[in-house]
Every structure is written in structure tokens, then in C-alpha cells.
Amino acid sequence: MRRPAIDRPAAAVLGLLLLAAAAAVLDWRFDLAGIWTRLDTAQVRDVVDADWFAWAALGAAVVLAVLALWWLLARLPRPAEGRVALSSTGSDRIDLDVRSVAPRLRADLDRVAPVDRTASRRTAVRGGQLIELRTHVDPRADGESLVNAAAGIAASVRTAFPDGEIAVRILVDGPKRPGRRRTPRVH
């Protein structure tokens, strides 16, 4: 799920508009500011019944619908490209298929660190791609082994991609099943 930058300003503007509508209804009901008694509905009806208003409404409807659909679709995740271009000094261009990197790193992390159920996500960032490994800690883990495992994986990625086309980030979440021990109990 991506987060479009327009979310915040648009939510603020819509919130203000909704509050203004609520204030108008409040004034209508309790006649606080007296705007409603001064409102000339005949003028409003004249504008709405005018010939040009139908076309203007149609145009506004199309523009608003396109904006709303774009706003909805902008938050769908966009899959990262399957390959990255290695930087080279010559005139040749080398594209490397990186789809197999994430499963390999996932297996590595599960093997060397006290974690389980690692998931991975590859996203495009400026200047390359980021592989985010998201995993669950084993409560019996210690900080040292987690740090060492992360350092080892980062080092292996840096060896494979010295120019930083691929970066790896490890997020460790809480245990998957809190309170349940995996050691079998023998009665």
C-alpha cells in the first residue's frame, strides 16, 4: 500500500468543507447567524436551471470522477521491476535479474538469526531497489546475534552489489505466537 503525498492536504481541505456544510445546517436549524433568512433561493434556482449549468455540471463531474479514481488508484502497490541495471564504465549495459535475491536473503536470515517466518518485499527507491525483510523474533533471541546476522546479510549484499543497486533492510517484529513455547513438552 503506497501513501500518496496528496492525502494530508486533501483530507484537511475536505474536512474544512464538511465542517462548513455542518455549520450551514446548524445555522439553518437554529438561525444563529441569520444567513439562511437572507439567502435568496430564487437566484440559486436561476443559476441551476440555466442552460450552461448542465454542461458545467457534466464537466465538473468528469473532472471530479477522474481525480477521485486517480486518488484511489494511487495507493495500490506498484510492483518493482524484476531487474536492475548494474553501473558499468564501458558502453555495455548489464541488467541483472534480481527476483531471486529476496527469497535467498529470506532463507539466509531464517538460518543465521533467531527469527522465524520472514517475509520479503522489494520496492523501487531512488537509485536502486530496497529489499525489506520483515520477520518475527524468537523470544529466546539476544541482541548480539540479531545485530551480527543483520551485519552479515548487509555485508553479503554489499559484496554482490558494491555500487548499492540493491539495499537490504531488516525489520524485526514481536513474536508471532506470544506465550506459546515451541519446545515439545514430554510428559
Binding site: R3, A11, L14, V48, A57, L58, A61, A65, A68
Partner: peptide, 29 residues
């Protein structure tokens, strides 16, 4: 996730509903 994510989805739906209202008016007129 930022707190504005759900209002954004709802806001887009509100915009769509308003667009439908305007389009219905144009069609009726």
C-alpha cells in the same frame, strides 16, 4: 501507516458520489 490514509479513501469515495450527483443533474437537465 499515517492516520490520513482512511480519510483519504473515504474522501475519494465522497468525491465520486458528488461527481455522480452532478452527472445525474446534467443527464436530467
Amino acid at each position: 501507516g499515517p492516520a490520513a490514509a482512511w480519510p483519504a479513501v473515504l474522501g475519494a469515495l465522497l468525491l465520486l458520489a458528488f461527481a455522480a450527483l452532478l452527472a445525474q443533474h446534467a443527464a436530467a437537465a
